[in-house]
Amino acid sequence: MADQLLEKVRDAFEGQIDFEGQRLAELLTTVLLGAAGIIAFIVGFFTQDIYKTLWIGLGGTALAFVAVVPPWPFYNKNSVTWLPPHNAISGLDIEVDGRKVN
């Protein structure tokens, strides 16, 4: 019981996502942060207000953190389908020094 609970906590903490989710997270990080930087500079430059640059940049970064860091459900839509488990030992034919080993 305690082990299962611990497992759940660990899963939530690790927040693993599938391979497609990782690709999406990578893309989102680049796009969000890049766009935040570019927009922050342009807005600040044309309004001649450096505080706008600062806050837009920090806001965009906060948004990127919220969007990417937690294991949102849309990162786990393409879960890996593992091959079905089978009893490995029964089907095996191992010979050691000409004798069958079970």
């Binding site: 927040g15 990080t29 942060l33 953190f65 990417v68 860091v69």
Partner: peptide, 18 residues
């Protein structure tokens, strides 16, 4: 980007670059 910690590190790393 498989776990929370790695994602946080990646986002922060790119933030410093930007």
């Amino acid at each position: 980007m498989h776990s929370t910690l790695v994602r946080a590190q990646n986002v922060f790393g790119l933030f410093t670059t930007v």
